[in-house]
Each structure stands twice: as structure tokens, then as C-alpha cells.
Design a protein around this nucleic acid. Structure first.
Lengths: 156, 156
DNA sequence: TCATTGGGATTGACGTGTCAATCCTGTAAC
DNA sequence: GTTACAGGATTGACACGTCAATCCCAATGA
């Protein structure tokens, strides 16, 4: 009886909460993605890339740093940059300092797209998430996500 | 000043909470999917389908009902059933009652796969989610997801 | 009898992500 | 000098989801 909770099953109630939690988060993500798509023709993947680049020095990052920053596999980034480059959002060029290594630079169009996209996106986040919750609820979210992140050993 | 909150932007702090929230949910989903894949060679999409079918009368559902139940587009379901049928998890046959309409039936292999997959999956949910949180935190999650669902007008 | 429409399902093209294999180019080992 | 290897990035094959187009078949209506 000492460790009856080891590898236990969730109760019906816990399972219900879990399903609601994960479905809601999913629905929210989907909703926001859809809005961003129609508002500015950007996917959330595009947004992540543009965000990091626009905050970077000279709007430029080494490909590997970028992958690190947003936590993607190299190959995913490579595929995605290829597509973004085709759309003119981004430009790749060999990196002078490092023999291997590629510099990824935001183009003017990319910077413009990001500016145009970010304002409505942030408003959407406010409208669909922040505005729904009381300050106490928001604090609760912060608390339990922190707990969860610690539990999963995610980097902060 | 009366409606200064209309279409407002999130504060830095609110944005941080939002990002943590959505990233954590994502990471959790990914983690669980990965485990299910290695434990039982099922994706979460497979799992959804198998779950509904195994609870259905005679392990069978009309394709359209199934789509309704799990909230998928018809075409997504069609594609996915095609793949699952190839793997022998599921069987499709024209529906005798309804002229149009296709019956989707769980095969023995499908039922077996689901049984084998569900136990470790539920344990994973417990380990990675339920066990991390205090009863108060869990109640908090329940509360704020309910609030969010109402706000987003998601069906319960 | 033949065109029309309508529900139910499938198909094809396309964008995306993953995994494993490959490529490229300096650097170290022999 | 040639071989090996190592870091950095790309590629290809495949699974998945979405959108729009199509197919199939019956029940109308002319």
C-alpha cells in the first residue's frame, strides 16, 4: 500500500479533466492559427521564425542557433526555411565567420509581414485567452503550468 | 475610457503566461503521442478512432457518425480510415440500411491493439499530468478550462 | 425518359513534420 | 597525400491534414 500511486490509472474524473484540458488547448491553438492565416497569411511556424529573426541582431541568425532557439529539428527548419525563402520572407547565405553554417536573414518583406501579423495576433491572444480569465484564474494557469513544466523537466 | 479593454493587447506578463500555457500543452501532447507510438504503434488519431469504435454497438459505426463523434472533417476521416484499413485495424463495408453510407467496423486486430494501447496510455496520462498536480491545482485546471470553453463557445 | 439535385463518401494536390540517409568541407591521423 | 571523421545543413520518402473537386446513387420534377 505504500506506493499505491505508482503507475496508477487516472480516475474517470481526472480523465475528464485531462481531456478537456488538452482539447481546449488544441482548439485554442487551431483557432488562433486560423485567424493568423486569414489576417496575415502566416502560419504559427512562420511566426516563430519571424519573431526570433526580428529580435536578432541585424535580423540575422545562424541556422543552427535559430533551430536551438525555437526548439526544432534541423531538418524541419531546413524544410521550412526553404518554403519561406520561396515566399521571399527570408534569405539564406553562407556564413563568413564559420566555414560550415548558414546565415538566415529576415528580408524587408519578412519584417513587414511580421509587423503586420503580430498586432492582430496579440489582440487575438488577448481576446481569446486573457480576456476570458479572471486575474486569479490567470495566476492559477501560471502556477500549474510552472508545476507541469517542472514535472516534465522542460526548460523554463 | 469606458471600453479601454476592447481589442486590447496582452501585457508582457500575460503573454509570458500564454506562451508557457500553450507550449506546455503542446509538449505534453507530443510526449504522450511519442510514448503511445513506441508502446503500441498507435497515433493519437488512431486512438480516437479505435476508442469510439470499441465503445460502439457491434464495434461498428456509420462513417458519418464517427466523423461527427470525433469532430473530424469527412475527408480527414476517409484518408485516415484508408490508412488504418491497410494496417488491418478496421474494415469498411457498404451499409445495408442506408443506401449511401459506409459501415466502419473494428477488426479483432483493431480491438486487440486498442486494449494493448489504452492501459499504458492511461498510465502515462496519470504519470505525466495527474500525478504532477495537487487536487487544488487539478480543480483549478477544471475550472479555467470550463471558463475557456464557455468563452470560446466550444460544446462541452 | 432524362436532367437535376442532394447526401455521403472518396480523391488529388498541396503544405507540413519526421526520420534516416546524404552531402559538403575542413581538420586530424596515418 | 590520402583516409577518416566531424559538424552543419540538405534531401527524400513517407505519414498526416486541409481544401476543393469529384463520384455515386437515389429521389425528384419536367
Amino acid at each position: 500500500m505504500a506506493q499505491e500511486k505508482r503507475r496508477a490509472m487516472p480516475t474517470r474524473e481526472e480523465l475528464r479533466i485531462w481531456r478537456n484540458y488538452i482539447e481546449t488547448a488544441d482548439a485554442l491553438r487551431t483557432l488562433l492559427e486560423g485567424r493568423m492565416q486569414t489576417e496575415s497569411s502566416l502560419s504559427s511556424a512562420d511566426y516563430r521564425v519571424l519573431l526570433e529573426l526580428s529580435e536578432a541582431d541585424k535580423r540575422t541568425l545562424r541556422s543552427s542557433e535559430l533551430a536551438e532557439l525555437i526548439g526544432w529539428q534541423r531538418s524541419r527548419l531546413s524544410h521550412h526555411l526553404g518554403r519561406m525563402e520561396k515566399r521571399g520572407l527570408v534569405h539564406r547565405s553562407p556564413c563568413p565567420d564559420d566555414v560550415h553554417g548558414i546565415n538566415v536573414q529576415l528580408t524587408d518583406l519578412g519584417a513587414e509581414s511580421f509587423r503586420h501579423g503580430s498586432v492582430p495576433h496579440l489582440r487575438d491572444v488577448h481576446e481569446l485567452f486573457v480576456a476570458a480569465l479572471s486575474p486569479e484564474q490567470l495566476a492559477g494557469v501560471d502556477d500549474f503550468t510552472a508545476t507541469l513544466r517542472r514535472h516534465l523537466e522542460l526548460e523554463p
